[in-house]
């Protein structure tokens, strides 16, 4: 059986090279500056963004990555896509029911399915989508719990 110790060293080096967003301690990604200015006046939004960042880190980051850029050709980016910025019901539906149709983003084709994350609460989904819609260069209105609830009701 062969397994290289060099690899561990290599990884340690890479990790040591200091990736700010993905360091080993997994800091919660910060809400962008612009949103921060806006949230000063809107504590409810600020709280939702903070909670949403935690959900993102626990659930979405594995596929869509810390910077929201995804990892083509398997996982699509969440940066200014029509799905992220567009209809909030469709967006909630993606998280609640998953997505299993080929889509094209920035000329790249994505075929792998996104699994449903229906075990998340309506609040968690509203928070994470509000976070996504206001991170990675995105800017769009918050997603409300009632909006997610309405979509979940159609799935029963």
């Amino acid at each position: 059986m062969i397994f290289s110790k060099q690899f561990f060293l290599g990884i340690a080096l890479v990790a040591g090279a200091g990736l700010t967003l993905q360091a080993q301690h997994r800091p919660i990604p910060k809400a962008p500056a612009k949103a921060a200015a806006k949230t000063a006046a809107d504590p409810a939004l600020a709280a939702s963004l903070t909670r949403g960042a935690v959900v993102y880190k626990n659930v979405c980051i594995t596929c869509h990555q810390a910077d929201g850029g995804g990892l083509p050709p398997i996982n699509p980016p969440l940066i200014k896509t029509q799905y992220v910025l567009g209809d909030k019901a469709r967006l909630s539906h993606i998280v609640l029911a998953g997505l299993a149709e080929p889509i094209e983003i920035d000329g790249e084709e994505y075929k792998q399915h996104m699994p449903a994350q229906a075990y998340l609460t309506d609040q968690q989904i509203a928070d994470v989508l509000t976070y996504v819609r206001n991170s990675f260069g995105n800017k769009a209105s918050a997603v409300q719990v009632a909006e997610v609830k309405a979509v979940r009701a159609t799935l029963k």
Binding site: I11, A66, L71
Partner: peptide
């Protein structure tokens, strides 16, 4: 890799 996040990719 892609499936190492939030750890560094390799």
């Amino acid at each position: 890799s892609w499936n190492r996040a939030p750890e560094p990719q390799a």
